[in-house]
Write a protein that binds this DNA or RNA. Structure first.
Length: 728
DNA sequence: AAGATAGTCGTTTTT
DNA sequence: CGACTATCTT
C-alpha cells in the first residue's frame, strides 16, 4: 500500500508521532502545531501500515465539534474504513455503552439523559421533599457539588458524614438525588461516565471484551480530562492497549471544572514506556506573537517544557492600547476593525476576546453604532432555548411517558388550566406510590381523587400525548415534531406572544422541524426518535448557525480555545478582570489565568492588540484597575503603545460628571506628547475635506497620524505633518 | 395565570 | 447597572 502520503508535508516531530511503532505516546502539541492533522495521520498510519483493524481504534474528544471534525477528516483520508472507528466525546461513548448494556448497568432500556437544566430542577424538587432550605443550600451550589463529586468518581454512599452540617446536608441531598434518578431512569452527564466506569468494574467479562477490542485509544485535549475520565481510560486500556494522549499542559484552562492538569503531567508515570513527542513548530502566528506567548507562559512553574517557534516572519509589534474607559476601548477597537475592513480585510477574521461575558456589551454597542455586523459566541445554545426545550419535552413524552422532567415541563405549557395545586397532588401521589408522574396522573384521574375540572384537564393532556404517539408512529421524525408542536398548541402559544420574542420562538420551532428533517441517524436499527433525543441531550447544537456571514467574532477567551484569527483583540486586560479577582488568591488559579492569556495570545495569526481601560463601569460602579500583570510579562520590545490621546485628559465627547479625573493612575503610559493641540473629539478643519471630528491619534512627532471623521467625506487617516489641519 | 415589583448578585461552561 | 428570580398582585 502506498503510504508515503501519510508523512508528506509533515515536520520531523510530526512524522515521529505519526509513524511510531505501536506504543504509549504522549504528544505535547503546542497551539497551532498541527495537532489534529497528526492525530488523523496517526490513525491512518495504524490502519494502513500497522494493519490495525479500524474497529480496534477508539478516538476520544471533548466536544462534539472536535469529534465531528475528526470524523470528517478521517473519512476524507480513509473513506469507508472510517465507519468502523469509534470516534466520539467521552459522554457520547459512555452513552453508547450504557445503551448497549442497559441491563448490566442496572438501567431501564429507555433511560433518559438529564441535561444540566433538568438536573437543577430535579435537585430543587428533591430538596423540597427533604424540606431543605434553599437559602442555605442554593440548588445551583448543590448541583455544582454533586457534579464535582461525580467528576471525582465519588458516589454518595462513598462519602463519609463529616459532622459538619453543611457538608452532611449536601451528602443527604446527593443521596436522595441519586435515588430519584435511579427511580426515574435518569442519567446526568457525570453519571454517564461514572456508570459506564462501574459497568466495567462490575462486569469483568464485559470489560475484557472491550479491552480486547480497543487496542488503540487516542485522546485529544488530554490536559482537560477529569478524574473519572482518566479512570475510565485507564480501566479500558487495562495495560494491554496503547494510549496516545494528545494535549498541551499550557492550555489547561478548565481546572475549575474538574479537569486535572496532573493527568497529563503524570501520564508517563502511570503508563509504561511512554514515548513523548513535542510538537513545537507553530504554523499559525508571527514570531513576535509567539515570543510574547512564550514569555508570558514562562512565568508558570512546573510546566512540562515546550517552547513554540516558527520560521514565519517577525510580523507587526503587539499593540497595547490604554483606554480611558470601556467605551473608549470599544471605540478604539471598532476604529481598527473599520480600518482593517477598509483595507480589504474580512470582518470574520477579527476576533474580540474577553475574560467575562459581561464585557461584550460595550463592544457590541460600539459595533452597532458603527454598523459593523458581529456575532457573539457562547450564548444560549439552540437546544437550550425555552421553546425548543418545551417542544423536545413533548417528543420525550411520546418516546417515554415516564420521563418526569419532561412531564413537569409541559403538563401546563401551553397553559391548559392545570395549576400548581393539581401538579402538587400528582407529585404527592407519585411519591407515595413510587411511580412516575405520568402514571400518577393517569391513576388519579381514574380513581376520582381529583376535582372533575382538574381531572378533565389532566385527562385531555394524557390523551393528547397518547394521540400524538399513535398518530405519528409510522411518520418520519420531522412529521412527528411538526405534529407535536402544532397539536400541543405550542406553536400557536408562541405565535400569540407579542413582540419580537414570539416571532423568533416560532422561527426556532420551525427550525427544530428543519433539524429533524436533516437528522441522520447513526444506527439504522434503532428508532430514530430515541436517537434524536439522545443527540439533543448530548449536543446542544451550535449557538447560531450563520456559517458564512462575514461578521466580527466576539467570545470569551475560554471559547476561543482551538480557534485562530488573523486579527485578534484581547480586551479588558486589567488586574481584577484578567487575571480575575476570584482567581488571584491561589497560585494555581493564577497560573490557570496565565494559561488562559497564553491561549488568547496564540489565537492571533498576524496582528494582536491588547487593550485595557483605566476606568471600567462594572456592577453599577466605576472600577479603576491597573493594567494586567500579563502585559508586563511580555518583553517591551515586542510591544508598541498606541496613544491616541495627546494628553491625558478625558475625551470631551464623554462626560458623565461623576468623577473628574481618572487620576494619576500608574499605567504603561510613559510619555505624553507635548503638543496638546489636538484632542480626541475635537472639531477640526481640513482645506479639502472640510470639517470633521478627531477619532484617533497615533504616533508622535513628525509621524503623528490622526483619524478624522469628516462630515461629508467619511473617516480618513492623515499625517499630521502633511495635512494642513486647523481648529474648526 | 399573567403581569408587576422587589430583591439578589455579579468568572470562565467542552458534556 | 441590569439580568434574573421569587413573590406578590390583580
Amino acid at each position: 500500500m502506498d503510504v508515503s502520503g501519510l508523512l508528506d508535508g509533515l515536520n520531523d516531530a510530526q512524522r515521529e508521532a505519526v509513524s511510531a511503532s505501536p506504543e504509549n505516546q504522549l504528544i505535547l502539541a503546542g497551539a497551532g502545531s498541527g495537532k489534529t492533522r497528526v492525530l488523523v495521520h496517526r490513525i491512518a498510519w495504524l490502519i494502513q501500515v500497522e494493519n490495525v483493524a479500524p474497529h480496534a481504534i477508539l478516538a476520544v474528544t471533548f466536544t462534539n465539534k472536535a469529534a465531528r471534525e475528526m470524523r470528517n477528516r478521517l473519512e476524507e483520508k480513509l473513506g469507508g474504513a472510517a465507519r468502523h472507528l469509534w470516534v466520539g466525546t467521552f459522554h457520547n461513548l459512555a452513552h453508547r455503552l450504557l445503551k448497549q448494556h442497559w441491563r448490566d448497568a442496572n438501567l431501564p432500556e429507555q433511560f433518559q439523559i438529564l441535561d444540566s437544566d433538568d438536573q437543577l430542577r430535579l435537585i430543587k424538587r428533591v430538596m423540597k421533599n427533604l424540606e431543605i432550605d434553599e437559602g442555605r443550600w442554593p440548588a445551583k451550589q448543590t448541583q455544582w457539588y454533586i457534579g464535582g463529586q461525580k467528576d471525582e468518581g465519588r458516589r454518595a454512599s462513598y462519602l463519609q458524614r463529616t459532622g459538619d452540617l453543611h457538608t452532611d446536608t449536601l451528602i443527604k441531598i446527593y443521596t436522595a438525588y441519586e435515588e430519584a434518578c435511579q427511580r426515574g431512569g435518569l442519567v446526568d452527564f457525570g453519571e454517564l461516565l461514572l456508570r459506564s466506569h462501574e459497568l466495567w468494574l462490575n462486569k469483568p467479562e464485559l470489560l475484557a471484551h472491550y479491552q480486547q477490542r480497543f487496542r488503540f485509544l487516542l485522546v485529544d485535549e488530554f490536559q482537560d480530562t477529569n478524574t473519572i475520565q482518566y479512570a475510565w481510560l485507564r480501566v479500558l486500556a487495562g495495560g494491554q492497549s496503547y494510549i496516545t494522549a494528545v494535549g498541551d499542559d499550557d492550555q489547561s484552562i478548565y481546572g475549575w471544572r474538574g479537569a486535572q492538569i496532573e493527568n497529563i503531567q503524570r501520564f508517563t508515570q502511570h503508563f509504561p514506556n511512554v514515548h513523548t513527542v513535542r510538537l513545537e513548530q507553530n504554523y499559525r502566528s508571527t514570531a513576535t506573537i509567539l515570543k510574547a506567548a512564550n514569555a508570558v507562559i514562562d512565568n508558570n512553574r512546573g510546566r512540562m517544557g515546550k517552547e513554540l517557534w516558527t520560521d514565519s516572519v517577525e510580523g507587526d509589534l503587539i499593540s497595547v492600547f490604554a483606554a480611558f474607559n470601556e467605551q473608549e476601548e470599544a471605540r478604539f477597537i471598532v476604529d481598527r476593525i473599520s480600518a482593517w475592513v477598509e483595507s480589504g480585510g474580512l470582518r470574520r477574521d477579527c476576533a474580540l476576546l474577553y475574560r467575562s461575558n459581561a464585557q461584550s456589551r460595550a463592544l457590541e454597542e460600539a459595533l452597532l453604532q458603527r454598523g459593523l455586523p458581529y456575532v457573539v459566541y457562547g450564548g444560549q445554545k439552540f437546544y437550550d432555548r425555552l421553546e425548543i426545550r418545551n417542544a423536545l419535552a413533548y417528543l420525550r413524552l411520546i418516546w417515554n411517558r415516564h420521563d418526569d422532567p419532561a412531564f413537569e415541563r409541559v403538563i401546563n405549557t401551553p397553559t391548559r388550566a392545570i395549576g400548581e395545586r393539581t401538579v402538587e397532588d400528582i407529585r404527592a401521589y407519585a411519591r407515595e406510590r413510587d411511580c412516575s408522574l405520568w402514571q400518577a396522573a393517569d391513576e388519579l384521574t381514574q380513581t376520582g381523587r381529583m376535582t372533575a375540572r382538574a381531572s378533565n384537564a389532566v385527562r385531555s393532556f394524557i390523551s393528547l400525548i397518547n394521540r400524538l404517539d399513535v398518530e405519528t408512529r409510522e411518520e418520519p421524525l420531522h412529521k412527528i415534531a411538526d405534529h407535536a408542536i402544532t397539536a400541543s398548541g405550542l406553536l400557536d402559544f408562541h405565535r400569540n406572544e407579542k413582540g419580537e420574542k414570539g416571532l423568533s420562538r416560532v422561527e426556532n420551532l420551525q427550525e427544530l422541524v428543519g433539524a429533524c428533517k436533516a437528522f441522520e441517524p447513526e444506527d439504522s436499527e434503532e428508532p430514530v426518535l430515541g436517537q434524536f433525543l439522545a443527540t439533543t441531550a448530548l449536543d446542544a447544537g451550535d449557538a447560531q448557525a450563520e456559517p458564512d456571514s462575514d461578521s466580527v467574532q466576539l467570545m470569551t477567551l475560554h471559547s476561543a480555545k482551538g480557534l485562530e484569527f488573523p486579527l485578534v483583540f484581547i480586551t479588558g486586560v486589567e488586574e481584577n478582570l484578567f487575571p480575575h479577582k476570584m482567581s488571584m488568591d491561589e497560585p494555581g488559579q493564577l497560573e490557570e489565568e496565565r494559561r488562559l492569556c497564553y491561549v488568547g495570545i496564540t489565537r492571533a495569526e498576524k496582528k494582536l492588540y491588547i487593550t485595557y481601560a483605566e476606568s471600567r463601569r462594572l456592577h453599577g460602579s466605576d472600577a479603576f484597575n491597573m493594567p494586567s500583570r500579563f502585559i508586563r510579562e511580555i518583553p517591551s520590545d515586542l510591544l508598541e503603545e498606541v496613544r491616541p490621546r495627546t494628553k491625558v485628559t478625558r475625551p470631551v465627547y464623554h462626560s458623565r460628571g461623576d468623577h473628574s479625573q481618572p487620576a494619576t493612575h500608574p499605567s504603561l503610559r510613559q510619555k505624553e506628547t507635548s503638543d496638546g493641540e489636538f484632542r480626541l473629539g475635537q472639531r477640526v478643519f481640513h482645506p479639502i475635506f472640510g470639517e470633521g471630528i478627531i477619532l484617533n491619534v497615533e504616533g508622535n512627532g513628525p509621524r503623528t497620524r490622526v483619524q478624522i471623521n469628516f462630515d461629508t467625506d467619511g473617516t480618513k487617516w492623515l499625517m499630521l505633518s502633511h495635512a494642513n489641519i486647523g481648529a474648526a
